[in-house]
Design a protein around this nucleic acid. Structure first.
Lengths: 311, 311
DNA sequence: TGTTTACATGAACAGCTCTCATATCGAACT
DNA sequence: AGTTCGATATGAGAGCTGTTCATGTAAACA
């Protein structure tokens, strides 16, 4: 039979296309070119003699055959991943310690659920979350006081490995009905006359200031707040503007509590990294933590995209 | 992650190795060379960083890692096959008619169980088994009185496609304690002084006579019996010798009812084919019947080997 | 109507998997 | 021990497949 030129690669492809809602987006996740995805999907459709994807609609729709094959993918791929995890445990052992430090305030949103999932699968790994804001999180790694830190920069450093997690968009937040809301996106100058509400961190840790406003010579007054909800409250009550990751504000946008606009025509994009000691990067329980975070984030967070660099 | 260079190909490989009990035998089933299997298995072990197969023992044993991966294969591959079957139904429809004629007497042993399995999966296909011994089974195909016949020869004929099923060994049967039983294998001359007990078919349909005894100029007396058990009974009661497929006599050998010996040093091997009209060969419900027979036979019948020709 | 965004396509390159030929290994036999 | 036989390993080369790059095309948006 089976004309089985079907491979797991094809199932992963179809799953990515279905989840990402388009070939281009799927290509990004798979770290392939759009061309490769198109070719490969066509090849798959050819060997099956069936159309799998309705190219017309956007987001792309699957045909009946596509849905059947996707069902297979969703059934089979988790089994494969589970088996590979078991093999990794056989190879490297199933126990370890993972002390995690987090640089970014909003990261707890996705980190906690990902940790819960991870715990189910690696019960032998001791998970610890280091509290408080860390001035030099990478230092913690070298000191041996942490094993993995979530950072927003990948500054090369000896003995340190930065595993890209995903890219996300920072959105400018305005109170509903604000005059700037008529624009599709905000230029640096638009921030000039407003207070900027931020977490209490140095300016060089704020992408909006460092990468957008400072280069344009704009220095709006700042006001600090500890909690995400507090920032949102201040914006909603017209005390100023803020910039937060798209995923963190999605629930508030739905309720119309604030409105969001792009920063710059193409948006202000940032990346997150899981930073570990080089020696740990290949250890199964560490590598799988990073994978778990990625999988979980893509499934849960709206509007994130694959990281640029090698995974 | 997943260092996933793992593909279904690898799972099929491991499954074949485990079932066949050796790389060489697995290669035969997969229609690959022994070299390819060895290379591929090594490549798989290398990417995983684990040994999967204990090469020392015979039949080959699996390591813990190998067993885990085999478990994955056994869970995932049937799902894949089921999905491909569903896709085939989507493409070609799930209904049809399959009137089957059988040339060989012992074939019912494996054909009936295979048909039962097939029926579960293709409930829309009308299965019929044509009774009686057929003089010219391929004629039935061309007449349109049958859709698939099981034959032991693949004589090329226009509009006819022979799908190889498997190869099997014909064993010579002796009563326990027979003088010839001291030999490891029987030469043509050994048959000279004994009655040969066969099914009631022309001589040119009996592989033992056509391919072994006739070329050696040996023409032993024959005695015919309709049923396999009758043949065995006659052998056991020292009325003569017989030659039957290894799978058909395995249960009697276990009980010591008769003993079996190879015919010639390397044994007398024959092949079976599923013969269909060329036009039907690509139809999903026909192709999958052939696949089902093969899968089922390899799982059930002892001592059969993969067919030689393309599948 | 120009612009943008997304998918398709063809050519060329790179890497992979197969086969062929041959080496190595181990067990059984003498 | 030496020989033989069956089975696995290994190296080199051939062919195929998947990927990228560079473009082409089509639909949606402004």
């Amino acid at each position: 039979m089976n004309s089985s030129h079907i491979e797991l690669r094809h199932l992963r492809l179809l799953q990515a296309v279905a989840e990402a809602g388009g070939l281009t987006a799927a290509a990004e996740r798979l770290h392939l070119t759009q061309s490769a995805v198109s070719h490969q999907l066509k090849a798959l459709e050819d060997v099956l003699g069936l159309t799998l994807v309705e190219r017309a609609a956007r987001p792309l729709g699957l045909t009946a055959a596509g849905r059947r094959l996707l069902a297979l993918a969703q059934a089979a791929l988790p089994q494969v991943d589970a088996a590979l995890r078991d093999l990794a445990k056989l190879k490297d052992g199933d126990a370890g310690e993972l002390r995690i430090a987090v640089e970014c305030h909003t990261c707890y949103d996705w980190l906690m659920p990902a940790m819960d999932r991870y715990r189910d699968v690696w019960p032998g790994v001791e998970l610890d979350l280091l509290g408080g804001f860390q001035a030099d999180p990478v230092g913690l790694l070298l000191d041996g006081r942490a094993d993995l830190v979530i950072t927003s920069e990948a500054t090369p450093r000896a003995g340190i490995f930065h595993a890209p997690l995903f890219g996300f968009e920072m959105l400018a937040l305005l109170p509903p009905g604000h005059p700037l809301a008529i624009k599709k996106w905000l230029a640096p100058a638009d921030f000039a006359d407003h207070t900027l509400i931020t977490y209490p961190v140095p300016e060089d840790r704020l992408d909006l200031i460092r990468r957008v406003l400072a280069p344009a010579g704009i220095r709006p007054p700042r006001r600090e707040a500890q909690l995400t909800v507090a920032i949102l409250q201040l914006v909603a009550s017209r005390r100023g503007l803020a910039a937060l990751p798209a995923w963190a504000v999605a629930p508030y946008l739905e309720r119309g509590y604030v409105v969001a606009r792009r920063i710059g025509k193409h948006g202000l994009w940032a990346e997150l990294y899981a930073t570990v000691r080089e020696a740990d990067a290949t250890r199964a329980f560490v590598a799988d933590f990073i994978e778990t975070v990625k999988r979980d984030s893509f499934a849960r967070l709206p509007g994130i995209r694959a990281a640029m660099s090698p995974s």
